[in-house]
Design a protein around this nucleic acid. Structure first.
Lengths: 142, 142
DNA sequence: CCTATTTCAGTGTTACTGAGATCG
DNA sequence: CCGATCTCAGTATCACTGAAATAG
């Protein structure tokens, strides 16, 4: 009870996320891609192509915002949108080879940002933190 | 390397913070106070009165935004601003008895939100998570 | 006709920036 | 005159809302 704020995860995680945002912002400074571009490419590469609505659900990005991010990635040649032959309302999104390449460059930066953020923790503690945070996400997001 | 996004704390913590924000939003629905009001009151009560700039630093709230939140809390009678007699540029902010009371009501809601967010974790794991997250914050924020 | 999907425009929220006012 | 503090107005970022367009 002495330090309420340090005992409330709701508060703590917001603070840490704010700091994380700054750190990743520094790493991506001057790079035309952002956190969300990284997330989209990573999801497409690691988990395969997806229909936009699925992809939005997977990443918990608003379907509306996803349109914009995909527009940007498509314009840069990093993803492709193809109409689903089985249901022409849908568009299947996939990463291009150039997208895979840029993802790997971005991942280096994101990894560096992680190292920065996690500097106070040992390797073991980092793993524990990842595992615990992961369990807080709804199943469909994993 | 199979699931990049689940291994990057920068990404994970953003997702969790987003979920946390929703959960606390639900708990505070209909309550005129917000997360930041809670944070301010908790800091003032648990760590004592402070000059605005210090308080902003402690909470990592922008000094500019703090003005607005304090205006609201002061109008409601939950905090008082007094000019520092030693330096009349400064204003010392303190919680009033009414502020202490409302903090305790808010804390119940925040605690409930935490329980909701942390539902998948055991008590022990929750403690571990709090401890790890806390270590990621710069010293001056604790 | 109704539903699902993508897209677009507008809104709300939250944090930040820069400059003015006051005071030491 | 300089620097610190608080305040105010405007900007930027990011997520959300609601509806149009297209198609099953």
């Amino acid at each position: 009870m002495t330090h309420r704020l340090n005992d409330r995860v709701i508060w703590l995680v917001g603070r840490v996320a704010l700091r994380a945002q700054k750190v990743i912002g520094e790493q991506l400074d001057g790079v035309p891609q952002r956190k969300q571009h990284y997330g989209i490419l990573a999801s497409l590469v690691d988990r395969g192509p997806a229909v936009q609505a699925q992809l939005a659900g997977r990443l918990q990005i608003d379907r509306s915002d996803l349109v914009t991010f995909l527009d940007e990635l498509e314009a840069a040649g990093y993803v492709e949108r193809q109409t689903d032959p089985d249901d022409r309302r849908r568009k299947i999104v996939a990463a291009t080879p150039a997208g895979v390449a840029v993802l790997e460059r971005l991942d280096t930066l994101v990894h560096a940002a992680d190292d920065d953020l996690l500097a106070p923790l040992s390797t073991k503690d980092r793993d524990t933190l990842v595992r615990l945070l992961d369990r807080l996400l709804p199943d469909e997001d994993r």
